[in-house]
Simulated scan of single mutants.
Amino acid sequence: MLNKTLSGFSGLSNFKEVVHNEYFLKALWNTVVWTVLSVAGEYAMGLISAVALNQQVKGRALFRAIIIIPWVVPIVIAGMTWTWMLTPDYGIINLWLTKLGIIDQPYYWLGELDTALLTVVFVNVWRSFPFFTISLLAGLQSVSRDMLEAAAIDGAGVRTRFFRIVMPQLKTVSITIVFIHVIWTAVNFDFIWVMTEGGPLYASETLPIMIYRYAMESYNFGNASALASMMLGFMISGFILYYMFSQRRNRT
């Protein structure tokens, strides 16, 4: 709190208050789920689309241009648009699902405890996977076709060629983009805030949203700074681990 009557070093009191907050563990778990599922989904979708766009098909240049559209859409516009589409009363998603017989009646995807966070993860994957597509597609362009043809002549199947030749050559770019997106996603605030504001009942609240509530709603800048410092420490630790892994890999 901003209290002029208090002065001096607070020590670890702010950190203790943050850790003992009743919603801290929930927000921490949501942050892990949000980050892991988002990055995993983005990588899987990016890899599939990159492999598809790397094939010699008619109109490939057009498809490559179209697939980047979700990435260039601003987060606020994407979040608000998907919120409208997922609305149970007039959202087009519920309309399609009910007409196809997948669900019996419109469902409040962003308003239920079990689906709020997963729905935002889905939308985040939809918007962010083109970044993976472009990066992995660039990596696929560097894979030697002569090597693939030689492996095919030797009897290696499509699956063997993909996992034994293609994927090892995508290792560097894969690790790099995954590491970058882990950081970007873990500290992401705007997507969840635009779509759910951390609700319902803190079901989709992550640590960045918790920091925002401390600072901008409760004006508890001490706790907000403490939690932000904890997240910064985590990011620095992740960077150090990534650097050590990269150095060890370069030596081998």
Rank of each mutant, 00 (worst) to 15 (best):
M1V: 04
L2E: 11
S7M: 09
G8S: 06
F9T: 11
E17N: 08
E17S: 05
H20G: 00
F24A: 04
W29H: 07
T35K: 13
T35F: 10
A44G: 03
G46T: 12
S49N: 01
A50W: 08
V51G: 01
R60D: 02
A61I: 06
A61H: 13
W71Y: 15
I75F: 14
G79H: 10
W82Q: 08
M85T: 01
Y90K: 15
N94I: 04
N94L: 00
W96D: 04
L100S: 09
G101Q: 08
I103F: 15
P106H: 15
E112G: 07
E112Y: 11
A116N: 10
L118M: 07
F122T: 08
N124A: 13
S128W: 09
F131N: 04
I134G: 07
L137W: 15
A151W: 14
R161C: 05
V166S: 09
T172A: 08
T172G: 04
I175Q: 12
T176D: 03
I177L: 06
V178P: 06
I180L: 14
W184E: 11
V187N: 12
N188F: 00
M195K: 04
M210R: 09
Y212C: 01
Y212W: 14
Y214M: 03
E217L: 10
A224V: 06
A226Q: 12
A226F: 15
L227K: 08
A228L: 13
M231F: 15
L232G: 04
G233E: 15
G233Q: 15
G238S: 07
G238R: 07
Q247E: 01
N250F: 05
N250D: 12
T252Q: 15
